[in-house]
Structure formats: C-alpha cells, structure tokens
Design a binder for these strands. Structure first.
Lengths: 366, 366
DNA sequence: ACTTTGCCTGGGAACGTTCCCACCCGTAGA
DNA sequence: TCTACGGGTGGGAACGTTCCCAGGCAAAGT
C-alpha cells in the first residue's frame, strides 16, 4: 500500500476515484471515457509516475507490438583488417549488413507502429538468445545461420518467422533474399562480352554458404551462355570469405600460372571473380604487391557493394545488395502473417530482391 | 484442452507429467531439476512447440532483460543531399549517429545478457513511442530531444534513464556526452597557432542545441587564450545545421567580405569553423563554386567525423566523436542503476567522453 | 530402527493488464 | 408515465509466468 516501488493501475484508480477498468480504458481507448474522468485519471497517473507495464499488457492482450531481429555476431575477423584502407580508428564508420537491415526493419516497423528488438547471436548460449527474443515479440526475422534450425522449427510453429538472405532451411518459412545468381551472371556476362575476357576464375566460399553457391551458379550459367567451358566447381574455395583468404586465393591463382603437370600451359586468368567484396579487396592488395596491374593485367570483381569497395584503389566493380529493402520486406512479410487472423496458413512466401551492378575501375570500367 | 493455439507451461507440464513449477524450473534453473525429469520436460516442450512467454515472465519477475533506446527520426533533410558526394544510391552505406550508438549499445547489452529494443521517435505521437518502450524495458537511453521532458520526468521515476549527448534536461538523470568544448577549443587552437590564422568565423546552430553551444564556447575560449577578440555570438547561426544551410552560411560570410558600412573594411575570414560536418561539407561546395580555394584561401573545419568528411575533397578536418563508446557507456550506467538493489539513490552520474581530432586537408594539414 | 539432512517436486499466490459482461441512469420515443 | 436505448463505468475472470513454502522420500548419521 502507501507508495509501492512502482505504481500500478490500482494506485492510479484509487487516486482518481475510478475503477481499474477505467484507467485501462484511458490508455487503450481514450474516447470511450468521459473527458472529465479521463483528465482525472491522467492527472493521477502523472502525479504517481505511472507507466503501464508492457509485460502485463502483453500478457493480457497476447500481442507485444514488437518485432524482432536476430543477426550474427558483429565482430567478424575482418573487423580490424578493414581499417587498413582507411583511418585506423574509423572503421566503425562503415555499416555492416546487419546495420542496414536493422535500419530497414526499424523504419518499416515504426511505420506500422511496431518497435524493434534486436539481438546478436552470442556464440555462447544459442538458446538464450532466441528464447529471449522469441517470447517477447509478435514475429521476427532471422539472418541465416544465426539460430539453430531445430529451435527455429519449434519457434516458427508459434509465431511468424522470416528468414533473411539464407537458405530457407525450414521450408514453411517466408524468406527474403537477393538475386545472387542473377547478379553474378550479369556481372560475369559483362566481363566476357563487354571486356572480351575469356579466362575467368571464380573464388567462392564454403559449400554451405547458400549465397556463395548461388553466385557460383550464376557465374557458371554465364560461362555456359557465352560458350565457355562450364566449371563444375569454383577454382578456389575459402572458409570464412575474409580478406586474408581472398589475398591467399589470389596468390594461389597466380601460382597456378605457368606449366601445370599434364594440363599443358596454365595461363594467368584474365579475371578473378570473387564471391564477395571482402575477398576481392584482399586480392587487390596481393595483386598490387605482386606487381600485377588491375585491371590491365587482370580484372577483379566482388559482390555485396560494401562501402569499402568504393574506397579501395582501384575502385571495385561489384554487385550491390539492397540490404535495407530486405529489412523492409521482412517486416511486411511478418505483418502479413500477424494480421492474418490465424485462419488458413498461407503459402510460405519467398521474396527475391533485385540487385544492381556497380561497374567500376577494377574491371576496366569507371 | 486439446491443442490451444499456443502451448503454455500447463500443456507442457501435463504432457511431461510434472507440475508447472517444474517446467518453469527447467527453463530458469535447469540444475535444480533431476536430469531425467528435465529431459522429459524438454522433450514435451519440443513436441508441443512451446516457447516461454516473455510477457508473462516479465510480469512475474519484474524484469525484462531488455534495454531500450529512443532516437530521433532517421530521415534527416540531408539524407539525399549526402549522396551528391558519392554514388547516388549508395548513401545508405553511411552510418548515422544513431546507427553507431545502436551498435555500441547492442554490443554492451549483449555482453551483459540483455537484448536491445530500439524505437525512433515518430513525429506523430510522442507518447506512443515512449510508452511502448518504457513499459517494456529495464532501463533505457534517450537521445537528446527525442522525448518530451515531461514524459521523461515521469518515466525516470520508475526506471533508469540515461540521456545521450544532450543537455541533461532533467537533473537527476545520468547522462553521457562528448567533450564538445574541449574538441572545438583544441581544433581552434590548431588553426590559430599551428596555421597562424587570425580571422576566424564560427557558424553555429540554433541556440537550443546544447552541442552547438558547447562547441561555440570552446571556440570562444580558444580565441581568448590566443589573445584574439572573443566573440559573444557565432558569426552565423543556422536552424537545422544542414548542408544547404552550411552552403548558405559560407555564401553569407563571403558576401560580408569587402567594405561594410561603418565598419570599415571587412576582410574575408581565413578560416570558417563549422559546428558540424554537414554544414562544413555544404560550405565546401559553395566555396568551390565560388572559386575560393580550400585551404589556400580559407580553411574549413567541421565537427563530428561523419564518414562523408573523409570522402569529400578536400578531406575535411574535423573532430571525431566516439558515438559507439557512448552507447557502451550508456549501457553501463543503466546496468549500474538496475543492479543497485533499489537502496540509496546514487548521485546522478555524468560521463564526458574524450574526442579525437582529425587534421586533414581542409585546414592545410594532411 | 529413528532422526536428520537435503534434494526434488507440487501447491498456489502474486504480477499488472485487458476485455467481456453487467449495471446504472439519463434521454428520447411511444 | 413507461419502455428502449446507449454512453459511461465497475466487477472479475483470464493471461502465463515466477517463486516462496511445504511436503515426500532416500541416503546418511546416531
């Protein structure tokens, strides 16, 4: 009694001389309360320092008004390396994917009256992360590889989940991705047809990276379309797709140059096509050190369109991904499910966002 | 009852043949339950697709495990203008302040086992924003000018609130800010002493911007220290501190050059000191168009250290703010309050983060 | 064989809202 | 004057957890 640590509807009701139902109404549906009563309540609330409990409300109304986003741990291995092309302590000026997606989701959420709960996966306890978010939102988006599939399977039975940029993994989930194959195909076509390059090499990531795989397929398709030999496998595969690995991959490709046992002469590729910008940037450094000129001696391309791609010299030809749109679309998909008043489970929807090409110096354009 | 839309502890308990208390224990304190029992429960939960309700938990335990952040609406007037120095559709590659603070807070929150709830203030309903967040978190940070002071006053009586980068407004709040005056003073000293400039002009924002005011004070102090006339007011004031206004301010300063009625000859300033980077960048454009060379004819400096400041030509000398640290410190302050087991209200704490100077081309360095 | 000591587990009261229902009462229609 | 109607309000049952308190029971101590 008296003044408990945090005032509740009861306290406000008592002070205003009304029932708790009326207090609730004042906040939920102001128009249904007579003006004078409303003012009394508001005044009491102000005096008491009353703030409605989101938890209690969420419990009673079975809706939180919050959307969630789970993304991978920020600190990627390149976090520091990235800085080498810029002021040392300025690297945090660049946005990561997650930042852009956050921005997109935040915008869209806000527009629809939702708040956004974000949580990066902690290597430690996977369960803790999801559990924390899942129980607290009306629906959420997951960046690929953030949440164990098993957990996702369970959770997605209870609330809307949309998968971002990944393999759809669980087949009944909505998901949003970018046109990886299309982008890579077009970029490759550009190298072949517009620049007349013939000997290409593709550097990919691990086989379990759906993005990298899709890009490789686009690359292979372009080769087939141009009548070039169609590779069954990427020329090089890396594990983490980092700058360091990209540098190493470039080295390896250069090393293969020359005579190769049984295969006759192996000429240096005219273009190194990387599955992401990070690797391409790493390669750029290696090539420069080796005295190989880009793009005169060899063209280099990336994928993603990270800010660094434009700062590096030569500027990197790449494929830009609309990460922000991705966030926005994710929200739309979630809301569609949430608003669907629980009736027929609609077909899982899959959105593929178009990418845009950035032709810059490293391929001979710009 | 059969299979209600969403399973609860009761359903799990029933299926596992235990009490709801045990189910709860399995999630909250696994070690307190015998292994075999635990497995039964987990198995039942999995089968049912059970996800603990965050709302219910929050209600019962009076803690949400979530920290909040309210920040101003993203879409600033310069959003598009910014792009003019870069690829047209690439402007979203740059981080805004809010992004960096989000990143900082997210990192720190995660480290301490909290999730982050973010919400930008919607011009429309101010109440709705805060109410939504406030009731749902254990404490939150507010960027200056995002939440009406009255609301803040009420809310801060109920849970920890820390003010970011603003006037502390309400005096019992913790707050975090950067050393605006120090940075501007040092930068100004640099112009005067290291470059030997004498005629400086300061372009500030509106009087109600505490940041801009603090910077002006630092500027004035440096003038006094150098024995130069101490300005009582900035030479120019803008309203929104945008690029456009910066450009206009530069024009105005140039226009003042020449004979001024009654004031004798008014020489062109040797340095234009802007209270933020946005305005400085705008000025750079104007000066270039006017054929005024930077830094030969006039030095230009900004404040903030936005990514654009390094991309623009000449590169902009500025003061970098550690926005990310700001987010981290904010979290620390919040946790301190939260963990304080409600006893003596500690003194409100005020953290001032040091800034770092970036001497670049626009002042004659770099 | 009889306590004592703990480990596990079950009971049940909060936690602070929302929302359906019922109730009161003044006004308009008959 | 009586009935219908409807805006405004109060009562009280959920909502799904957590957590304190007991109680049961087996292993260990006397």
């Amino acid at each position: 009694m008296g003044t408990p640590s945090t005032p509740t509807v009861y306290d406000v009701a008592e002070r205003a001389g009304v029932s708790i139902a009326t207090v609730s109404r004042v906040y939920r549906n102001p128009d249904s309360v007579r003006a004078t009563t409303r003012d009394k309540v508001l005044e009491a609330a102000r005096a008491l320092g009353y703030v409605p409990s989101g938890s209690a409300r969420g419990l009673a109304s079975r809706a939180t008004g919050v959307l969630g986003l789970c993304f991978p741990d920020y600190s990627d291995p390149d976090a520091e390396t990235e800085a080498l092309a810029a002021d040392a302590d300025d690297d945090h000026a660049f946005m990561l994917y997650s930042d852009q997606i956050i921005r997109g989701m935040e915008r869209a959420s806000r527009r629809h009256g939702y708040a956004l709960l974000i949580a990066a996966s902690l290597k430690g306890g996977p369960e803790s992360l999801v559990a924390k978010v899942a129980g607290r939102v009306d629906g959420f988006a997951v960046m690929a590889g953030t949440v164990p599939t098993d957990d996702l399977e369970v959770i997605s039975r209870r609330l809307p989940v949309v998968m971002l940029a990944g393999p759809r993994g669980i087949d009944h989930l909505d998901h949003v991705e970018v046109a990886n194959a299309d982008g890579q195909r077009e970029l490759t076509r550009h190298l072949i047809e517009d620049h007349g390059l013939r000997r290409l090499a593709f550097v990919s990531g691990p086989p379990n990276s759906p993005d990298a795989e899709a890009r490789f397929h686009g690359y292979a398709e372009a080769c087939r379309a141009a009548g070039l030999p169609v590779p069954a496998e990427p020329d090089v595969r890396t594990v983490m797709m980092t700058q360091a690995e990209g540098a190493q991959a470039a080295e390896e490709l250069l090393a293969r140059t020359g005579t190769v046992a049984g295969a006759g002469t192996h000429e240096r590729p005219e273009a190194m096509v990387f599955a992401n910008d990070q690797m391409a940037v790493g390669a750029l450094h290696t090539l420069e050190r080796s005295g190989v000129r880009v793009p005169q001696d060899v063209a280099v391309t990336g994928f993603d369109g990270i800010p660094l791609s434009r700062l590096v010299r030569p500027t990197l030809t790449t494929v830009r991904q609309p990460m922000r749109d991705m966030g926005e679309r994710a929200v739309e998909l979630l809301l569609r499910r949430i608003d669907a008043t629980e009736p027929g489970h609609e077909e899982p929807q899959s959105v593929v966002l178009p990418v845009t090409l950035a032709y810059r110096q490293s391929c001979g354009c710009g």
